[in-house]
Amino acid sequence: MDLSAINPVLLVASLMVAATPLLLAAIGELVVEKAGVLNLGVEGMMITGAICGFAISVETGSPWLGFIAAAIGGAILSLLFVLMTQVALANQVASGLALTLFGLGLSALMGQSYVGIKPPAMGRLDLPVLSDLPVVGPILFSHDPILYLGILLTGAVWWVLKYSRAGLILRAVGENHDAAHALGYKVIRIRVLAILFGGACAGLGGAYISLIRVPQWTEGMTAGVGWIALALVVFASWKPWRALLGAYLFGGVTVVQLNLQAAGVAIPVEYLAMSPYLITILVLVILSADKSGAPAALGRSFHASH
């Protein structure tokens, strides 16, 4: 066992990378749930985004186009959820589960000819002086642009929900859709937009895994991150910064346990592998003790005549 092989600076830098797919998916789902919709299809939208992003960036050679395609792919898949739950008023839980299963199957089909290929790499931020600073440089100033996008998105979502009129209306729709309708807000339209946003975010998160974190395509490679994102939103009490904290915590423990495995610590691998899930949920359960409640209309279908 050799713990000295673990470099703390690289550890922090890589935990941010490990956390980003989770953060992107969670922020998207947070907005969806704030609008009163429970979309359990995050995993399916992520994996679809992962293959869309991978395929397009391999075909075009541009990771940027890949990420755009991933966002569009996730949003298109979420459109299916829109049709089921907002138009046909189907049960949201069942529709979400169906979306996940569908997304897993669809991505496997689409990805058949992409196994074993390496995608084009995305450039990293390289600021003169800043990126070369010791410690701070590798942690803060030499990541890929999507990682920064994730943090910016968290801040933007927080600001919009808290201070903007659009955010207030979104929260109102998620809180009491009948009242929002009575005041003349377009409940369905707002929810559809929120779902599409959630789909695009999940798609980005998936593509981050296939293009940056593990730059390759394997069937089912999101490996449950979508489900963790769903849990994260709940335990983060629907607060964006707490979701960021939870995502980084999860990423951190994941990276640490991988390093510990590599260093040959005398703890069975299974325990190490389950530790990120346990620790993240434990910490967030403690944090969510203040009982800031769920959006009151979460998971309920809205129809104007009811």
Partner: peptide, 11 residues
Amino acid sequence: VFQHFSLFDAL
């Protein structure tokens, strides 16, 4: 002014 108040409890 609505009969069943059109208010949002959490806001």
